[in-house]
Simulated scan of single mutants.
Amino acid sequence: MRRWALAGGGALAALCGVLATAPGRTAARLPEGVAESGAVGLGPPPEAGGARVLRVVDGDTLVMRIGGRSRRVRLIGVDAPESWARHDCFGVEASRALRRLAPVGAEVRVVADREPYDHFGRRLLHVWTGNGRLVTADLVRSGFARTLVIPPNTRYAAVLGAAEAVARRAGAGLWGACR
Rank of each mutant, 00 (worst) to 15 (best):
A5H: 10
A5S: 12
L6W: 12
A7S: 14
G10Q: 11
A11Y: 07
L15R: 14
L15Y: 00
C16T: 14
G17I: 01
A22R: 10
A22H: 07
P23K: 04
G24F: 03
G24M: 04
G24T: 06
G24A: 05
T26G: 04
T26S: 13
A28T: 14
R29T: 15
L30W: 04
L30K: 05
E36G: 15
V40H: 11
G41I: 03
G43W: 00
P46D: 13
A48H: 12
G50I: 02
A51H: 11
R55S: 14
R55H: 14
V57S: 04
D58Y: 03
G59Q: 10
L62M: 15
L62A: 14
V63S: 03
R65S: 15
I66H: 11
G67Q: 12
G67E: 15
G68T: 08
G68R: 09
R69Y: 06
R69K: 14
V73H: 08
L75T: 10
L75G: 10
L75C: 10
L75H: 09
V78K: 01
E82T: 07
W84A: 02
W84L: 03
H87Q: 14
H87S: 13
C89H: 04
C89K: 04
F90Y: 15
G91N: 10
R96W: 06
A97K: 09
A102S: 15
P103Q: 11
E107L: 13
E107F: 04
V108L: 12
V110W: 14
V110C: 09
V110T: 13
V111Y: 02
V111L: 05
A112E: 13
D113A: 01
P116G: 07
Y117E: 13
H119R: 15
R123Y: 08
R123G: 00
N131C: 01
V135E: 07
T136G: 10
D138M: 05
D138N: 03
V140Y: 06
R141P: 01
S142C: 11
G143Y: 05
F144M: 02
A145L: 08
L148K: 13
N153I: 06
T154K: 05
Y156N: 11
Y156A: 03
A157Y: 06
A157I: 02
A157R: 13
A158P: 02
A162P: 09
V166D: 07
A167I: 03
A170W: 01
G171E: 04
A172H: 08
G173F: 02
L174A: 05
G176L: 05
C178E: 06
C178P: 09
